[in-house]
């Protein structure tokens, strides 16, 4: 769930490589999983991702949480949260969820008075939406497709990854900010904020996982299924 400018371009390029590389088995030791036909390729990507995240990205995110003053942290989170509220509103409309769209648009309107960096809407009790393009495709009945893992981006699927690429190309920063250094700072902060949000989940994986790759895959797929069904996924007790 981490997006950066180079990250998403990389994703687009790697999606192609993944489609080709999926045929060539590199590991061959694992049982094929229905949801993860490209597992050998994904495991290579994960092996590249792991040390990068553990040694560079995660310590930066943790330092941000530990040393940056809270008002700055929440200001940055609110700033990028407003952009996501806009996308959530758009995706709620695409799914005909008028109430949710109303909440998201209400949040945007109210947060103008917080100059984009104070989350007045949450203080006023307007629930934060979380719709995205991947969920919209899911709501329309498009299946997840094969599971994919990319360095720095993390777990995704063909469906959700397509959503991420659309999300990136429609991102306002790309069009509104012409100053390249400033734009890069914004991309960096946006990606950092996403990684910060995932820190709790990382700690959970540290404690709980036997095999991190498999644990993250199952958790990601469960979480997305849950989001597509707005918190009421059909309960499955069978093996798959």
């Amino acid at each position: 769930m981490k997006i950066g400018i180079s990250g998403v371009r990389l994703a687009a390029a790697l999606a192609l490589v993944g489609a080709l590389g999926g045929c060539a088995t590199t590991g061959g030791n694992s049982a094929p999983s229905k949801a993860d036909p490209f597992e050998p390729f994904n495991r290579v990507m994960y092996a590249i991702h792991e040390p990068l995240d553990t040694n560079i990205v995660r310590p930066i995110a943790q330092a941000w949480v530990d040393y940056v003053p809270t008002p700055i942290q929440s200001g940055v989170h609110t700033f990028f949260g407003n952009i996501e509220d806009g996308f959530s509103a758009f995706n709620s409309l695409l799914q005909g969820k008028w109430d949710k769209a109303g909440d998201d648009l209400g949040r945007l309107t109210v947060n103008i008075w917080g100059f984009g960096v104070i989350d007045i809407a949450t203080q006023a009790g307007i629930p934060k939406g979380d719709e995205d393009f991947g969920q919209t495709f899911g709501y329309w009945g498009i299946p997840q497709g094969p599971y994919l893992f990319f360095p720095l981006i993390g777990p995704t699927t063909v469906r959700d990854g397509t959503g991420l690429i659309i999300r990136y190309y429609l991102g306002p920063t790309t069009y509104l900010v012409e100053d390249v250094p400033l734009r890069n700072v914004l991309y960096f902060l946006g990606a950092l904020d996403l990684r910060v949000q995932a820190l709790d989940a990382s700690k959970m994986v540290d404690q709980a996982a036997i095999d991190r790759y498999t644990f993250i895959r199952r958790a990601y797929l469960q979480r997305r299924e849950y989001l597509v069904h707005d918190g009421n996924p059909p309960r499955k007790d069978d093996d798959e």
């Binding site: 999983s33 709980a208 996982a209 036997i210 498999t214 644990f215 895959r217 199952r218 469960q222 007790d237």
Partner: peptide, 8 residues
């Protein structure tokens, strides 16, 4: 159930 794949 998050452990099922790992256990398998």
């Amino acid at each position: 159930t998050n452990y099922r794949d790992e256990f398998n």
